[in-house]
């Protein structure tokens, strides 16, 4: 999932568009979903955001669908918790009620409505967030935070971890392949043992990599600050128009 999202974040049609623009549209949609808080707004936001992601940014539907699908599975779990209530005695005005040992599981019309309500709100805002992360690479978002005057150390840590992440992930993949080839995951016990080896070796690799990077930077005159050239972005007027339309339709 990580590599798929990252890949499309770099390879979609809106890659060069200013992250402020994409961020503003996504955040505004999320805030509208939360503040207006009507089921219709959530469903509309979901539809709009998926459409913009798929048609305007040209992210394949199956990718956008897979991301939102994975989210809905988890969402379904939490929503069940809202819809069903547990009590000691059979509830009075329940739509559904089943005894479960000494307890009664029940769902009333009101609780189902709340559940649907939360479901729509969460799906709408999740789709907006997905639009942002499927069209904007993390490095652009970090650059956006820098422009919003986030502390320099925080920005630097994030940029460093983003870089380190893929180094470590590649190392992890290689180690998993090697372990699998030697039947490292053939049984439950072997899996635990291999996972532990993996975790500890990964820590050592991370430590050594950071030391190597430090040596390399010191050799090049590292004075405690990493500066990179900011990227240049374009402004997409059409996208502002679409964003405005979405906002207006939600309100």
């Amino acid at each position: 999932m990580l590599r798929i999202i990252d890949q499309y974040a770099f390879a979609n049609r809106l890659r060069a568009v200013d992250p402020i623009q994409k961020g503003a549209i996504a955040v505004a949609t999320i805030l509208l979903c939360l503040v207006l808080d009507r089921p219709l707004v959530g469903w509309l936001a979901l539809a709009w955001m998926v459409m913009v992601t798929v048609w305007y940014a040209r992210v394949p539907l199956r990718v956008a669908g897979a991301v939102i699908g994975a989210e809905s599975v988890f969402l379904a779990l939490s929503v069940i918790g809202i819809a069903v209530s547990v009590g000691n005695e059979p509830p009075a005005a329940a739509l559904l009620a089943i005894p479960f040992g000494p307890l009664w599981l029940s769902a009333t019309g009101a609780s189902l409505q709340t559940a649907l309500h939360v479901l729509s709100r969460a799906l709408g805002s999740a789709a907006a967030l997905n639009f942002l992360i499927l069209t904007t690479p993390l490095i652009d978002l970090i650059e956006l935070l820098r422009r919003l005057r986030a502390p320099a150390l925080l920005i630097e840590l994030m940029a460093l971890s983003y870089r380190a992440l893929f180094v470590l992930l590649d190392t992890l993949d290689q180690m998993v392949t090697a372990q699998t080839a030697r039947l490292g995951y053939a049984s439950w016990r072997a899996t635990l043992r291999s996972s532990a080896l993996l975790g500890s070796r990964l820590f050592i690799v991370a430590y050594q990599r950071s030391q190597a990077l430090e040596v390399a930077l010191t050799a090049r005159g590292f004075a405690g600050e990493l500066r990179v050239l900011p990227l240049s972005y374009t402004v997409d007027r059409q996208l502002w128009l679409i964003g405005g339309l979405i906002g207006a339709s939600l309100v």
Binding site: L157, L160, L165, S195, S210, L217
Partner: peptide
């Protein structure tokens, strides 16, 4: 020089959470 280690530490935590556990 610790900042590099801290960056890798965050990445390590992220990658660790991608580990599959039985």
């Amino acid at each position: 020089e610790v900042r590099l280690l801290l960056g890798f530490a965050a990445a390590f935590t992220f990658v660790l959470s991608a580990l599959k556990l039985p």
